[in-house]
Design a protein around this nucleic acid. Sequence first.
DNA 1: CGAATAGTGTCTCTTAGACACTATGTC
DNA 2: GACATAGTGTCTAAGAGACACTATTCG
Lengths: 232, 232
Amino acid sequence: MAEDLVLTATLAVDLIVLTVRNGALAFLAVKRGVPPFRGRWALPGGFVLDGEPLRAAAERELVEETGLSVGAHLEQLATYGDPRRDPRGRVVSVAYLALVPDLPAPVAGTDAADARWHDLDAFRGAGHRLAFDHDQILSDGLERARSKLEYTSLATVFCGDEFTIAELRQVYEAVWGVTLDPRNFHRKVTNTDGFVEPTGRTTARDGGRPAQLFRRGAIELLHPAMLRTAGA
Amino acid sequence: MAEDLVLTATLAVDLIVLTVRNGALAFLAVKRGVPPFRGRWALPGGFVLDGEPLRAAAERELVEETGLSVGAHLEQLATYGDPRRDPRGRVVSVAYLALVPDLPAPVAGTDAADARWHDLDAFRGAGHRLAFDHDQILSDGLERARSKLEYTSLATVFCGDEFTIAELRQVYEAVWGVTLDPRNFHRKVTNTDGFVEPTGRTTARDGGRPAQLFRRGAIELLHPAMLRTAGA
DNA sequence: CGAATAGTGTCTCTTAGACACTATGTC
DNA sequence: GACATAGTGTCTAAGAGACACTATTCG
């Protein structure tokens, strides 16, 4: 292996930030203010700095580009290193997946012309294309999120600190694109030890019988798993 | 973001190559022939070349260092980018996980003093430590393999082209470190459409009643999943 | 009151797991 | 024959899903 052939690449991080807004799955995008792909929507992200851990770079870039901070859940997704994925040269990007509750509107940072939440189905239905290979990255992140809802209690990170069972169900319905039976869902969630814990308080924000409020339980893995089967 | 602070890192790939030998889970290691960590066991891997896709680098390094080629299954695992993970400087490593059938002994390449299969439990039981952060990478790969056996048909890639149900069961037992009921396992596997397909041939290599031989089926995802619960 | 949402009871079907039993080879 | 491994039958318990029913609010 000749030393002069060894690659020194520019390292970037990109973020798939998912949330549930108005019952629909949404992701965070920034409109590029500089070339390449100027004016196109892209995932938030940017270059890793010298001496900076990858995860720290992801957190920093999110704040810089959108004014939001992650808090809830941030995990590494995958690394994208196709030699031609960036027209500027060899840029290898480590993608991170963040799942967050319904946050305020983002504020575009210096390199961005705009930043906002996009309803995922609407964005794709309109035929929009993200910059670089970000459509692929977004798809991979979405698939990771969908499958993690099955066997972990991660759905709770989409909710606020206190939430009703119905709100939690709407998370599953939005992420999986299915309709679940509210009664069976309620029993399943409340019977799984450690999934959610009652706070003792109630809310009537939905107009019917007041619902109990819950918070995240201690467990991370669900036994048995939630099933992605569609209901009525 | 000042341009002079942007990181240009050296990119590497490392491989966790797992197989089942003599009923035990084993991984492939090379003894380092050059500093740093000279003389220590490490995962096979090396630097990505200019213009080379990451996955191609993983395949190339495996052949160069051990004479083995992957064939069966190779997937990206995670990327390790701690600024101090390599004493030579900032080296970011993309780890790949390979699952292979029982292959011949590896042959050490030019940079390696030795290359061989290590029984995983014996290696750890003896208190050996891999170079760099490779213990962590190995653990992560192992955990990925363990969980993927649950919900995919990947266990079959540990077997040869034709295998008996008992051989497939031994894969699960070795990877999960449990004992499974042969009768229930047999029924479960053969009743899951597309998991394995009968070849019509039999073998008597284990001294009892001849067993039917099967090959991999078409499906990739198992419904319902295999459960990691220990049997008698 | 009706409408709406929260939550429980209960039935059926499928599957996991335990394990008795039968089948077919070698020695 | 004994022994070993392959494979089937059957029972029980638990969970998924369907859905009738009760509970508690608002207007």
